[in-house]
């Protein structure tokens, strides 16, 4: 009762990174709250799935296994979660801010009248005092997210309704094994008792899933370009540097909107969140929506011809100058010093 729950997204038997990241976060919240971490797997052929999630600190794994539950459709998954949550009364329920989580979360929160905060960038535990009602609360979930197009950061709470629900984008939280030998309990769900025929009203006629071609998220070095790169041709300079130092190329939205780079390279609030060892920002001014996706990088180098570009505030190294001049030199001296 009153534990932390994470909904697992599963594609072809593999638990999605975003779910594992949430398990890591969920584990630390559960430790803080002194409660258990439970995970919910809804799909088909789930045998053995526990091996993927127990090391992340899952104490209880609920499994709803039925051929009709994979691939994901809204209503059967929603119905199972709603009924399970009514029974188990979680205090916190987390899911990915993905195509699935953002389809499922609102439906569940609406049925439970629980409230839901989309796209959180940080989750913390804290108290709250409602002076007007003369009430104090402890151990609430602070659901922290950018608002208003990313121009402000808001901390949202649900003082009175449970579960406190939040979605988080892939890459925002860190994924970390809790204990390789951690084992939890498996609790199968009697699917037939939960879902009815009407839940299967929407059916999938055709489905094409693609694996993302660009692997920016897992790259430890990122060379990112902004509007200041100036053209698609100039982006080649970034690809050249990335190739010699073993990195991937990312981009700001302004660069993508201008057609200099492809959409799947976008870093930021509405793109991918990254935390590489080295982030080289070339011709990026550092607007908050971009910074939201890269500020956790260990080392940041900014190459900008404007000494006052906001990104310089974050940079460990600021190179004041034209990227057209700097990038070839970086390649040249990297090669010279590694020979």
């Amino acid at each position: 009762m009153n534990n932390v729950f994470v909904y697992l997204e599963i594609e072809e038997g593999i638990v999605a990174d975003v779910s594992l990241e949430l398990l890591t976060k969920g584990r630390s919240l559960a430790n803080q709250l002194n409660c258990k971490l439970e995970a919910v797997a809804i799909g088909h052929n789930l045998k053995g799935l526990e091996k993927q999630v127990f090391p992340y600190g899952v104490d209880v794994l609920h499994t709803a296994d039925d051929a009709r539950l994979y691939p994901y459709t809204t209503q059967p998954h929603a119905t199972i979660l709603i009924k399970l949550f009514e029974k188990e009364k979680p205090q916190i329920a987390l899911m990915g801010a993905s195509s699935i989580g953002r389809d499922l979360g609102p439906r569940v929160s609406s049925a439970l009248h629980s409230g839901l905060t989309a796209d959180c960038t940080s989750l913390e535990i804290g108290g709250h005092e409602d002076k007007k009602a003369g009430k104090t609360y402890t151990d609430l979930l602070y659901q922290i997210r950018p608002a208003f197009g990313g121009n402000i950061v808001a901390t949202i709470i649900n003082p009175d309704c449970r579960p406190q629900m939040a979605t988080v984008r892939e890459g925002v939280m860190k994924k970390e094994i809790f204990a390789q030998n951690h084992v939890g309990k498996i609790k199968p769900i009697e699917v037939a008792e939960y879902v009815s025929e009407t839940d299967f009203a929407v059916s999938i006629i055709e489905r094409h899933m693609e694996k993302s071609k660009v692997n920016i998220k897992n790259s430890s070095i990122i060379v990112a370009g902004g509007y200041g790169v100036g053209s698609r041709e100039n982006f080649k300079l970034l690809f050249d540097l990335a190739e010699v130092i073993g990195g991937e190329v990312g981009a700001s939205r302004a660069a993508i909107d201008a057609g200099y780079a492809d959409k799947d390279r976008q870093i930021g609030q509405t793109g991918i969140t990254v935390r590489p060892k080295l982030y080289i920002a070339c011709g990026i001014s550092g607007q908050i929506q971009h910074v939201a996706g890269m500020q956790e990088s260990a080392i940041i180098i900014s190459i900008n011809n404007d000494a006052n570009a906001p990104i310089n505030q974050l940079a460990d190294y600021r190179i004041n100058g034209e990227l057209e001049e700097v990038l070839p030199k970086m390649i040249q001296f990297y090669k010279k010093n590694t020979k």
Binding site: H113, S114, G115, L116, T117, H128, Y142, Q143, P146, A147, N151, I152, V153, A154, T155, I156, I157, N158, P159, D160, C161, I288, V291, I300, P310, N312, Q313, L314, A315, D316, Y317, R318
Partner: peptide, 18 residues
């Protein structure tokens, strides 16, 4: 059910940089 507890403008912590 959801309430806004606080709203903050975003300020960067300036790093010491080279």
């Amino acid at each position: 059910p959801t309430k806004v507890k606080t709203i903050e403008n975003i300020v960067f912590q300036a790093k010491e940089s080279k």
